[in-house]
């Protein structure tokens, strides 16, 4: 299964405080382990929300708000995409992550067509694929 591992933001990441050399080295080693285990698909860190924007949809024009955003706990500071065999395997790998006290990581399974199981009938799938392809054409036009 494909999972996204979300690194929650905290005061430091939001303040744009860069990790120490040791922390960077430890994270580098960890990332290397993930790569060598063949499970890492992608991963990146995010700039603080002060450099971000939010777009809220309303009945009228979408409303754009500049960062930073207040509720730090709901913000994210980075992510990985992994391909693992089970959620338990993802948990095992997350437990090995060199994170300092108080940091929280969240693991979420990424939807893939097969996850819909029986309920996702061939007809529904075809429709979904048509929608995807329409969306794709619209995006390009």
């Amino acid at each position: 299964m494909k999972v996204m591992v979300i690194v929650k933001a905290n005061k430091d990441t939001e303040a744009g405080i860069m990790p120490t050399t040791e922390e960077l080295a430890a994270m580098g080693n960890y990332n290397e382990e993930l790569v060598k285990a063949g499970i890492m698909l992608a991963g990146d860190g995010l700039h603080p929300s002060s450099k971000g924007k939010r777009v809220k949809f309303t009945k009228a024009e979408p409303k754009v708000t500049d960062g930073p955003f207040a509720e730090t706990k709901e913000l994210i500071a980075g992510f990985w995409m992994w391909r693992v065999k089970s959620m338990a395997e993802a948990v095992e790998w997350v437990k090995r992550c060199p994170m300092s006290d108080g940091v929280e990581l969240e693991i979420r399974q990424v939807f893939e067509a097969d996850d819909f199981g029986e309920a996702f009938t061939p007809e529904l799938r075809a429709q979904e694929e048509r929608l995807m392809s329409e969306a794709h054409k619209l995006a390009k036009s």
Binding site: S86, A88, E89, V91, E92, W93
Partner: peptide
């Protein structure tokens, strides 16, 4: 389940 995962790793 966790042991299974550790074993796989």
């Amino acid at each position: 389940r966790a042991i299974d995962a550790v074993w796989r790793i």
